[in-house]
Structure formats: structure tokens, C-alpha cells
Amino acid sequence: MSTATTPAPPAGTRPMVEVRAVHKSFGALEVLRGIDLQVRTGEVAVVLGPSGSGKSTLLRTINHLEKVDSGRISVDGALVGYRRSGDKLYELREREILKQRTHIGFVFQNFNLFPHLTVLDNITEAPLAALRRPRKDVLATARALLDRVGLADKADAYPRQLSGGQQQRVAIARALALEPKLLLFDEPTSALDPELVGEVLAVIKDLARQGTTMIVVTHEIGFAREVADTVVFMDGGRIVEQGPPGQVLDHPRHERTKSFLSKVL
């Protein structure tokens, strides 16, 4: 996994995320049955699949919110949650895992904004705690991020005074405040009223245009077609097929992909 021994590959081809043979069970239920996935730097991967196919669990293993049972995951060349010594993986201490997570932004389906903090405090909390930057810089960055998601005037509002779409845009700004190398989105529009979906997708599209590396779990097929570099279709804890959207969405090779798409399109 060391990049020092091999010549650096050209930008855009270096893997940002590498998932190898990942298995994960909850009790008797095996939710991930051997996942292999690569996401290059600057790539947008959209993960589709029916409920219970393991897509959210996969996303949560990438920032170690869920531990894997076997297999390994690395982000930007570093193993997530473990240190390798010989042929063994040693689990990292929480402090080290937390440090790794500051490089990986996560956006939740239910926003999970902190309701007792203002919008601005929500965004500055992590940079102030984790990065130990001067307060003035952090505040300036936070205001710039709010402006970028179109909510510059909501800095002093509390989350519950905002619409769902506005809350999710704040959550995206909060994830961006740590300047992560990778952004993970777990069904970012599933909890929204239909008329609010567009404003959140617009922000994600904007990030994609600027070359942010992202993995997006979603049910929005139109969004996948427009933004994804790679579409990954999961079912029953496995990746059934993956490829460019034109291939997976328009000419799916697998029966299960075809039947899923026929139901959601």
C-alpha cells in the first residue's frame, strides 16, 4: 500500500479509496459479503441498490463508524482504523481513528446537526476542536462555506429554524470545514420533501465540478446519470456491477440491475 516504493501515478488515477474483500456481519446477518471497490482521486462514485443491500454499511465502514470483520480499507494510502505489522492488523486507538476521520467528511441522511448550537457553531466546532486553528481563520472559513452553500444569512439561526434542505446544506458545509480529502454522502436527500431535493443536489454537483472525491449513496437515478463517473450497483451485500453511468444505467448486464432500474425509473 506504500506509495513511496512505486512512482506516483498521474493525478486522477491515484486511488483515494481502496476497499479489499470487506466482510461485515450484524449477528447472523451478513451485510457485506466481500466488497472490492476503488475510487480514484477526483472521482464521483454513486452507489445504488435496494434497501438492505449494504450500501450504507459500506459507506460507514470507510470512516470506521462500523468496524469490518475482515478485509481492509484504505483512504489516501492509509489503512482506516488499523495499523499493519507483518500479516496482522492492529486496531488503532480512538484518538488516531478520530484523526483519520478529520480527513473524511460524512453527510448523514438525517443531517444530524447539533440542535443546541447555531449554524455557525455547528460548522466551527470540529475545526476549533480538532485542527486547533486560530478562531478568526476558522470563523472566516465557516462564513465562506455558508456563502458557498447559499446560506450566508443563516449563520446565527438554530438548525430547527431551517428547512430540511437548508439543514442538509449546513451539514455539507460542516463536513467541508475540515477540508477533507474525501466526502461520503449517506442518502443525503432521502429525508427531504421532494421540492427541497434539488437545492441539496445542486450543492453536491457543484462540489463534483470542483473535483472533490465523493462516494454518494442515493436513490436519485437522474443525479447519478448526471454527476457520477462510476455507478456502483449493490444487492445482497455484494457489488453486482459497476461502470460509467451510460453503461450501468442504460445497458445493465445483470438481471438484478435491470429489475431494480425498471422499478425506480
Binding site: 478529520t102 473524511i104 470540529a126
Partner: peptide, 11 residues
């Protein structure tokens, strides 16, 4: 809430 705090790397 706890998950969000963990995802943001808060101790």
C-alpha cells in the same frame, strides 16, 4: 448526534 460528533473527529 454521537455519530456525527465521531465522524467530525471530536474526542
Amino acid at each position: 448526534q454521537l455519530e456525527a460528533a465521531q465522524a467530525l473527529g471530536l474526542g
